[in-house]
Amino acid sequence: MPDTPPFEEWCRRLKASDREAYAALFDAMYEPIFRYVRSITSSAEAARDVAQDTFIRLWEARASLSPSQSLEAYLYRIARNRAYNHERNRRTRDEKEPAVRDKTAAQPASPARPDDQADADRLEDRLWQWIGELTGRQREALVLTRFEGLSHEETADVMGISPRTVNNHIVRALKHLRGRIHDYEPDLLGRDEH
């Protein structure tokens, strides 16, 4: 991320119903929010709905925004609640679906490719496949801290758990991935950085 978006200023202007700030916030945050929601929901369609709801809700709640809080974390928190609600509702609607969302649900899992495609099958795709194997919380903690650039305090705020627990989730996630990477190509881990 090149520049940190001016969340505090947006927060101030949103409180004053500044639609331009709202549009700017949308521009900066739609994709990250969509990606995050997509890591929770079962389909891109659902992620679109949830992401849209999130931004509508933000506008409705603009008067209660507080500049002392992290606007970014707040946005993720709305998105998270909506995404989990959506998934819960979907599961109740659709009883046939086994409740093992944690293992399978969300996005990244690009289908495993045949070996003859190994060249094109970049490490990146593999990584996302393995991230798809993590439990929901591990994946969430990892995605928020590593890919969306939230601090672990903000992540804890979004997930409603303690920073310590966030760390535990991340470490477990990294260990799982380390195992996968090691099986795939041990050399990738060999590089010492100190």
Partner: peptide
């Protein structure tokens, strides 16, 4: 390594 990966959902 994760730093080099872009989320596919983008």
């Amino acid at each position: 390594l994760l730093g080099g990966a872009d989320a596919p959902a983008t």
